[in-house]
Design a protein around this nucleic acid. Structure first.
Length: 446
RNA sequence: GUGGGCGUAGCUUAGUGGUUAAAGCUCUCGGUUGUGGUCCGAGUGACCGUGGGUUCAAAUCCCAUCGCCCACCCCA
C-alpha cells in the first residue's frame, strides 16, 4: 500500500500533472469584494428602504450617476494630494484610450451631473440622494472593502447654516430609525475658502514650533496638508494636535465663525445631540465650513461622514455654488446593526405550501399555485420532489404554517386537502372553496 | 506600502512524521399503504490553499507563493 502510494507520487512528479490544470483552478472573488448572500439581504433592504423613504419624504430626488467617470473628475475634485487619488483609485484606459476611474466616492459624480445637466438653472436648492458601490484600492480589514456601498445625500445651491443642520438632523434620524443606539455626530469647522490660507499659515507656524514633538508622518504632513496632523493617532502628536485644533478655530474669520455658531445653534434647537471636535478633519480637499462624522459613542469606525463643499461646483467648471452632503458607510452601518442586535425585519415567509403526489397531481398543483398566487399569497412548493415526506420537510424548514395537499384522490374529487402544519389537523375542501378555506385558516392563526 | 494571526468536507472543528484523514451541523434518501418538525438508520461530501523541498513515509517539518482575518497608513 505504501508502495502504491509511492508510485502515484512518482507519476505525479514525472508528469507534473495533478489532475487539475491551471485553467481549472477555482476563480475567487477579487480581494476586498464580497458576495452578499440571500440571508444577508434583509440588512441591505433595511438600509436601502429606509434611506429611500427618508430621503423622498424630505424632498430629495434620487440620482444615479455612472460607476466610472473621467479620471480627471476625481483628480481635480477630490484633490491630487489625497490618498484616495494618489494611491487608491481603480484607474484604467478603455479601448479608445479614455482615462477612466471607478468612482472612489459619490460627491464628485453628483456635482458633475449637476453641472452637465444644467441643474444650476433649476430652482435651488437642488436636493439629491443616491445609493451605490464605490471603489478604493485599500488593504481590506474590518469594515473596509475595495468595493463598498454608500448611501449619500447632497444639497446644492444654498448657503445657510440651517441646511447644514438639517442634513445632520436627517441623517441622525435615519440612523436612529434603523435601530442604532448610542450614536453621536462629531462636528467641526474647517473655515471657508477665504479663511483657509490664514488657517494654513497659522497652523504651519504652530506646528513648526512644535516640530520636535511630531511623528515622522506628521512632519511630512505638516507642510503638505497640515489639517491632517489634527487627527493623527500617534501618541506623541496628541497633545500638539489638541492645541492645533484650537489654532484652527481661533483663526476662523468672522463669517466662518458666525456660520459655525449658527449651525450649532440650529442643532441645539433641533435637539440633535452632537459633540464638538476641534480635531475632526476630513480627508478630501473639497470641504469648507462644516465637517461632521457619525460614530457610535464607544468610538470605532465612522458610520458615515460629510460636510460642506462650497468650492467644488465651481472647481469642476460650474457656477459658484455652495453645497453640503453626507455619505453613509453601508457595510459599517450593517456591522453595527448586527453588533447591537438591532431589530431588523426578517424577509416574508411563505404562508402556503403546496404538496403534490403523482403526475396528475403535479399538473393540478401548477394551477393551484397560480390561483393562490393570484389571490395574493406567498406560495412555496417543491415540485421537483416526489414523496410527501420530503415535501413536508421542506415546508417545515421554510416555516410555512399551512399546506395544500393534492394526491390522485383529490384530482379525481376536484378537491384539495388543507393541512394546518402547527396543530396537525386537516380538512378536505372542494377546489372552488380552496381560496376561501385558506383565507379562513390563515385568519384563525392571527 | 508595513506588521501580526490563520488556511483540513458547504459550515464549525479534531488530527503535530506512520494503515484507506475523523466528528458534529447541513444536505439527500429511508424508518411498509398518501403526512412534516423531535428521534433512529444510511448515504453524498476533503487537489488537508497552491508549488517546491526534506524523508522509506508529510495534513503534520522547511522554503516560497496565494488567499482570508486583524492592526498601521488612510478612510465610509
Amino acid at each position: 500500500m505504501v508502495l502504491a502510494r509511492g508510485v502515484g507520487t512518482t507519476v505525479k512528479r514525472y508528469f507534473g500533472y495533478n489532475g487539475h490544470t491551471d485553467m481549472a483552478r477555482n476563480i475567487q472573488k477579487p480581494r476586498g469584494t464580497q458576495d452578499i448572500l440571500p440571508i444577508e439581504q434583509r440588512y441591505w433592504f433595511w438600509i436601502e428602504d429606509n434611506w429611500r423613504k427618508m430621503m423622498l419624504s424630505a424632498g430629495f430626488g434620487r440620482i444615479t450617476t455612472p460607476t466610472f467617470e473621467d479620471t480627471n473628475l476625481f483628480t481635480r475634485g477630490v484633490g491630487e494630494t489625497t490618498d484616495i487619488v494618489s494611491k487608491e483609485m481603480y484607474s484604467f484606459k478603455d479601448r479608445s484610450d479614455n482615462p477612466l476611474t471607478l468612482r472612489p466616492e459619490g460627491t464628485a459624480g453628483v456635482v458633475r451631473a449637476y453641472i452637465e445637466n444644467g441643474m444650476h438653472k433649476d430652482p435651488q436648492p437642488v436636493k439629491l440622494y443616491y445609493f451605490g458601490p464605490m471603489f478604493r484600492y485599500d488593504r481590506p480589514q474590518s469594515g473596509r472593502y475595495r468595493e463598498f456601498y454608500q448611501a449619500g445625500v447632497e444639497l446644492l445651491g444654498e448657503l445657510d447654516p440651517i441646511v447644514d443642520a438639517q442634513i445632520i438632523a436627517i441623517v441622525m434620524k435615519y440612523y436612529t430609525k434603523l435601530g442604532l443606539k448610542d450614536i453621536v455626530v462629531r462636528i467641526n469647522s474647517v473655515g471657508d475658502a477665504k479663511s483657509r490660507p490664514k488657517i494654513q499659515r497659522a497652523l504651519i507656524d504652530f506646528l513648526s514650533a512644535h516640530r520636535r514633538n511630531l511623528c515622522k508622518d506628521c512632519k511630512r504632513r505638516m507642510t503638505k496638508n497640515p489639517l491632517r496632523v489634527l487627527d493623527c493617532k500617534e501618541k506623541s502628536c496628541q497633545a500638539v494636535a489638541e492645541e492645533a485644533g484650537g489654532v484652527v478655530l481661533d483663526n476662523l474669520n468672522n463669517d466662518s465663525r458666525n456660520y459655525f455658531t449658527k449651525v450649532l445653534e440650529y442643532l441645539d434647537d433641533m435637539r440633535v445631540e452632537y459633540e464638538l471636535d476641534p480635531r475632526l478633519v476630513r480627508g478630501l480637499d473639497y470641504y469648507t465650513h462644516t465637517v461632521f462624522e457619525v460614530t457610535t459613542k464607544t468610538g470605532g469606525l465612522s458610520l458615515g461622514a460629510g460636510g460642506r463643499y462650497d468650492g467644488l461646483v465651481e472647481l469642476l467648471g460650474g457656477p459658484d455654488t455652495p453645497a453640503v452632503g453626507f455619505a453613509v458607510g453601508v457595510e459599517r452601518t450593517i456591522d453595527t446593526l448586527k453588533q447591537q442586535q438591532a431589530n431588523v425585519p426578517e424577509p416574508m415567509k411563505p404562508n402556503v405550501f403546496v404538496v403534490q403526489l403523482g403526475d396528475d397531481a403535479k399538473k393540478k398543483a401548477i394551477q393551484v399555485i397560480d390561483r393562490l398566487d393570484n389571490a395574493g399569497y406567498q406560495v412555496a412548493h417543491a415540485l421537483g420532489r416526489g414523496s410527501i415526506k420530503s415535501q413536508l420537510r421542506v415546508a417545515d424548514r421554510l416555516g410555512t404554517s399551512l399546506a395544500v395537499i393534492i394526491g390522485s384522490q383529490e384530482v379525481h374529487d376536484k378537491s384539495v386537502i388543507i393541512r394546518d402544519l402547527n396543530d396537525r389537523t386537516q380538512e378536505s375542501v372542494l377546489d372552488r372553496d380552496m381560496i376561501k378555506a385558506v383565507q379562513r385558516k390563515l385568519k384563525e392563526k392571527k
